[in-house]
Design a binder for these strands. Structure first.
Lengths: 408, 408
DNA sequence: CCCCTTTATTACAGGCTCCATAGATATTCA
DNA sequence: TGAATATCTATGGAGCCTGTAATAAAGGGG
């Protein structure tokens, strides 16, 4: 027996590691499982259907093994064969594609003025949607009722049953904590504390999560929109109630209690009152608060000096809070979303000018591209993230695509 | 042949995913490799030496396989046998421990007033160090010379050769970009643009990286210090030149160009001038700038109302920039580091009071515990991260512990 | 002092997955 | 129609993990 050179000293866990330990590998069947999932992933991420030979190159497996794996995936219905590409030399190779239509998820936007439910496939493509109008004064239970109607409409339009959904995420104003509880809300007096997940759970048997609306909008832009693939970005919601959300290292940053991007709460940024500078502008005289901003942006675009000055003041305040986040995080990109982003042609240059003196490095600033489905699509993206986690977790064995059921 | 139900439609990569694809699994030998690395990881992360039976439980492998794996690891020198635990029933089981002494890394603090080189083992335990005093006026080449002397001293004290090191990371003031180039520096006029990695590379054949000093201090606190295991934290460097660094999701947040935590550059925070409030306090009259702050904190602790007021003003300014970061990120913890943190008993309550009105949720605030070796230890931690990446990458086959060589 | 219980180690048979190689097949181009 | 090219199919062999049974080592009780 070899004697320990340190005797009986107990080793303490001296250093905390950055990544949590997760077991993988093990059984032979686990190896096969891994190879199956790797192939599935390669097919999903690919731009075009892949031939077996291409898959061999991507996975590093031998042709024979890839053949087995693909046969199994096809048998279970995860992938489908596509007509071979014409015009190639030699015997034409079979081509396979990931069946994005094998499953669907639901994204729900519990907006102040509307409830929008969107059903997407596994690639985040919109399949169907349902929409119900509400307003600032709609009571809590009517709002929840509207959500159910919007969901039903989307399901009917998609031809799916509720039990076919693999996951759902709803976006709401206010701070949403780690448990999905809505804790702080400005716009809707009877909304805090609502058990949104519980209510939706009566209608949907799939896993459900709740998230802040700006965060979902940011996620949507990073997955499907103008920020596709960017790792670090700040999403600015510019509208009558400004807000912000962060994507860091490719993932939504939720923070410890969900209250991220709340820099506007500092009085010196002036975010709470800056929309007033637009509404009090002569160009907006007599218009409703909803209309005011657009009128001012239009006037500024047309050359009205008062309107341009008002936009500049607004941009300077916006820049103050934005600079705090940009200086803190040094993101690659700032995305301009929310109602006012429709006037990005006017607002963006003003913001650029106002931000520049504060910054070490001025990040790229781009207007959002997804429009008003943004939050619902972000919900679908988050639900897809959860599907991914479940699908690639190596727990259990691969089976035919089927909706996971929520545990009680 | 199965006909595609969508004909020849080319699938676009509609959705960008959060995690980049990385192949794993494959060969049978890869499976063995994975099982070896999992066992090695389990042994490293464990608090005490493990028996084979415990390892079986942790890895999910069969006893026979674990036996094979452990024999191979021991043969290569990654693990060592320890005397069996006495006083257990039945035949005593062999116990094994991770050989933290199998390799070493170097952390270097290129401070304004000192150069400190620390050699640690694979658990981040300090094995030896070397220190050379410099000052604000030391020229660039002397500073680089001092670094070499400090490194040599640490190597001599540790009994290692430069070629035994598995990695090295140096911390420096200023903004360090992704390529390790130092771009912006306040304290040292001839320091920007210095090729620190190149210079150290002449002395050290191992991989070398450069990082900002506050960032390394933050990392050290998160791995070895008061923030051990915390996923999201803000590190505040409080001293004559305040600064900040972020750990997000367990990893150092570097940002796009390295300029993170620079919220103090905004004039309204007053970070550039706030130390003056301490120096102009009567309690610090006649003292050198270095001494002034400590005198004021001491006086405040003793009850001097002028000093207490000065500390309050200082804390209010500090709180402004801190609030910007805390509201943006909602971290679990704020760590107070830097020179002034020695007076945390006075400063921390004042900061708490000043921060509270700004915050949605006041994070926990704790003073740093690592002291002046902080930056060098952080360098060692970052070097260990790179070692981990290389070790657990599944590239090639497991071999005896040996220092990786830098590619030319 | 011997025997029994408990636990760890060793040895062997069996099953699964992967790889390599060679021959058969399907399409294009001359 | 035949040559060239590339894919598909089938078979044999090797490596790794598992499960079970036999063996070894320590402590406690009679």
């Amino acid at each position: 027996m070899i004697k320990s050179d340190k005797g009986d000293i107990i080793q303490r866990p001296l250093i905390a590691r950055s990544k949590p330990v997760q077991a993988s590998g093990g059984d032979l069947q686990r190896l096969r499982q891994q190879n199956i999932l790797n192939s599935l992933r390669a097919l999903r991420e690919a731009c075009a259907p892949l031939t077996l030979t291409e898959l061999v190159a991507q996975t590093g497996l031998s042709r024979a093994s890839v053949g087995d794996v693909v046969a199994e995936l096809q048998q279970h219905g995860w992938i489908a064969e596509v007509e071979p590409a014409p015009g190639t030399l030699g015997r034409p190779a079979k081509r396979y594609r990931f069946r994005t239509e094998a499953g669907h998820v639901l994204g729900i936007d519990m907006g102040v003025h509307k409830v929008l439910a969107v059903v997407t496939d596994l690639a985040g493509r919109t399949v169907a949607s349902g929409r119900v109008a509400v307003d600032r004064h709609t009571a809590r239970h009517e709002r929840l009722e509207a959500a159910c109607r919007a969901i039903d409409a989307a399901l009917v339009a998609s031809g799916l049953a509720a039990s076919d959904l693999w996951g759902a995420t709803a976006g709401s104003t206010g701070v949403v904590n780690r448990e999905g509880l809505i804790t702080r809300v400005n716009d809707l007096p009877d909304w805090p504390g609502v058990d949104l997940a519980g209510h939706l759970g009566q209608r949907l048997p799939c896993p459900i999560s709740i998230e802040n609306d700006s965060k979902l909008a940011a996620l949507a832009e990073q997955r499907l929109g103008v920020a596709a693939g960017v790792r670090d970005l700040v999403y600015l919601h510019v509208g009558r109630r400004p807000g912000a959300a962060l994507i860091l290292n490719g993932q939504l940053h939720h923070g410890f209690s969900g209250a991220t991007g709340e820099v506007g709460l500092m009085e010196i940024t002036g975010w709470r009152t800056m929309a007033g500078h637009l509404e009090s502008c002569p160009a907006a005289a007599g218009a409703s608060p909803q209309e005011a901003a657009r009128l001012v942006f239009d006037a500024a675009r047309a050359g009205d000096p008062d309107a341009q000055a008002a936009v500049d003041v607004y941009a300077r305040h916006l820049a103050l809070g934005t600079a705090a986040m940009v200086l803190t995080l040094d993101p690659e990109l700032v995305v301009l979303g929310g109602g006012f982003s429709r006037s990005a042609d006017v607002l963006l240059p003003a913001l650029n000018r106002a931000l520049e003196p504060h910054c070490v490095r001025l990040p790229d600033i781009r207007p959002s591209t997804l429009g008003e489905e943004c939050v619902a699509l972000g919900g679908a993206c988050l639900a897809l993230d959860h599907v991914d986690e479940w699908l690639f977790s190596l727990e259990g064995t691969i089976a035919s695509p089927a909706a996971p059921q929520r545990l009680p």
